[in-house]
Design a protein around this nucleic acid. Structure first.
Length: 509
RNA sequence: GCCGUGUUGGUCAACCGGUUAAGACGCCUCCCUUUCACGGAGGAAUAACGGGUUCGAUUCCCGUACAUGGUACCA
């Protein structure tokens, strides 16, 4: 087999969708598994949908994910340029060749004309219009016109598109790496536009030309492309020969968790989870859509979760580093059916990864996160201890604020409802006494504290258990967190005393 | 409508003709913990339907149903 070269070909039209990242991942895993190269080619042929900043954003997402790109607009490479808008002239020469060989033709029908025809067909209830062998001789194109007429229109600068001429009696067959043998009747495929009136190629022409020129060996893309695969194959056949064609792999779709359909940005907004890899600010409406990164996901978890959506190793292992994924990945274990996205499972992956990774790999992010809440870390050793103490309670990085905040800031509100109903003078006195005990304690450590706490409780004839919850509320403000005495030890003697005193005054009222 | 693809618990899924039909998420119960989690032990919950093929079908084939994608001078 010749050198493995795969490509991710995004259009810079908006945020990078989950499904997009998964396509990247599978491309990448396959390439690295086989010692190949991963290329990113920007497919910016639609000038109307182009969005400023989207291209840069896509690369930022890949960087966050830790995906290294071998060739792209950023890194350059032997097949530059990697932006289709900069290769515009190229496509025209291939389109011309197609016309010369009788595999394509000029069409002068205006979009408006086609549109009205379409509406008419729809009104008649005869399905949508297919510009194909059955109709093309009734349309305004170089197949119907005599050469002189065509030339005259061309010379006059009449806007035109170039369409592929699909011969209706053939059958296209090809092997998809995921789906196996596939057959399409040409009669069902229409004469797709190859070159638009603005001189830009459509996706159909551009992918084929660029995959050939960039020596792509395997083409991974979403299942939504399956219906247009015959057009691409026809183009390969006419232009470069089927032997040079990459092997196709049409990936299953990622679907909405609830209803039906492909997962979209709107579903995320509606159901309260991100769909984009990173925060995306749409410059047109100046609105930010939340991303997995900003919500508190670790890239390792994000990728791991995506890998298990549509692929599985056939073993019980679920947690994979990217290295392990490369090792384990195989195309024939990719599923055919679409998978519904499950945000709960996604969070579970993140929780696993927070436990698995050393604190050092996300410490800085947590620090920034706390800084936003006006908690400034000055003692890194203390900080690390805190993180280790609370990490198993954190599912998202953002959970660290709630789980670790009280180690740096005394509570300002207390869950008094958890204490008040059972609060009495005896308990009040206990804590006053306990402060004195603490003051005398030479080594302020959890185990010693617990012993003296229990001893004093017994002496005062109160069950220790009834005192631990109030103590927790005093230190934390609420009913969560690690063992109370561990917290006390961590924040230190003075802080512990001060928090008890403060809370005592609150409880009295 | 037409064309394509798909269909194992609520979700992700294993099994590639013979299994008590794995495992994970979520859910429930109990234990641990007089907090919240983690952890541990259990539990409920699955082969869309109908025909074939076969000694035997969840597994292969054909229908039906349902889902999903395409049907753009968008990708």
């Amino acid at each position: 087999m010749s050198k493995v070269r795969v490509r991710f070909a995004p259009s810079p039209t908006g945020g990078l969708h989950l499904g997009g990242v998964r396509t990247v991942l599978f491309n990448y895993l396959f390439a690295k598994k086989n010692g190949g190269e991963f290329i990113v080619r920007v497919e910016d042929t639609d000038q109307a949908r182009f969005v400023q900043g989207a291209e840069e954003y896509i690369f930022d997402c890949l960087t966050w994910c830790g995906i290294k790109v071998d060739e792209s607009v950023i890194t350059g490479g032997p097949f530059a340029p990697y932006r289709q808008s900069e290769r515009k002239e190229l496509y025209k020469t291939y389109a011309d060749k197609l016309i010369a060989d009788g595999h394509a033709y000029y069409a002068f029908d205006t979009p408006e004309e086609i549109e009205t025809m379409r509406e008419k067909r729809k009104a008649e209830g005869s399905g949508s219009l297919q510009y194909d062998a059955g109709i093309r001789l009734h349309m305004n194109n170089s197949l119907r016109l005599v050469p002189q007429e065509t030339q005259a229109l061309l010379d006059a600068g009449t806007p035109y598109v170039i369409r592929i001429k699909v011969e209706p009696s053939e059958t296209i067959s090809f092997t998809d790496m995921i789906r196996g043998e596939l057959h399409f009747e040409n009669a069902n495929v229409d004469d797709k536009v190859l070159m638009k009136a603005d001189g830009m190629p459509t996706y159909h022409l551009a992918v084929v030309v660029d995959d050939y020129l960039m020596k792509i060996s395997h083409a991974f893309r979403g299942e939504e492309w399956l219906p247009s695969a015959p057009v691409h194959i026809l183009l390969w056949k006419h232009l470069f020969g089927l032997d040079a064609m990459p092997q196709w792999a049409h990936l299953p779709l990622i679907l909405k968790p609830d209803g039906n359909g492909k997962l979209s940005k709107r579903d995320g907004d509606r159901l309260g989870f991100p769909v984009y890899a990173m925060d995306w600010r749409d410059p047109k409406i100046n609105e930010v859509t939340k991303g997995f990164k900003e919500l508190g996901f670790l890239p390792e978890a994000f990728l791991n979760m995506l890998a298990m959506l549509g692929w599985n190793p056939g073993t019980e292992q679920e947690i994979f580093t990217i290295k392990e994924l490369i090792e384990a990945f195989s195309i024939d274990r990719v599923n055919k059916a679409g998978a519904k996205f499950d945000f709960e499972k996604a969070k579970w992956f993140n929780h696993q990864w927070i436990q698995k990774l050393p604190i050092s790999s996300y410490q800085l992010q947590v620090k920034k996160l706390l800084a936003k809440q006006e908690i400034i870390i000055t003692d890194d050793i203390y900080f690390e201890k805190v993180l280790n103490l609370v990490k198993e309670r954190c599912t998202l990085l953002s959970d660290f604020y709630e789980q670790a905040g009280y180690f740096f800031k005394a509570p300002i509100t207390w869950d008094v409802d958890a204490v008040k109903p059972k609060w009495n003078d005896d308990k009040n006195n206990f804590f006053i006494g306990f402060i004195e005990v603490i003051k005398k304690q030479a080594n302020f450590i959890a185990t010693d504290m617990e012993i003296s706490f229990k001893a004093l409780a017994t002496e005062k004839n109160i069950k220790p258990g009834e005192l631990q919850l109030p103590m927790r509320i005093m230190l934390v403000g609420s009913k969560f967190g690690p063992a109370v005495f561990d917290i006390a030890e961590m924040i230190g003697k003075d802080e512990t005393i001060s928090r008890i005193q403060k809370a005592l005054s609150v409880f009295e009222n």
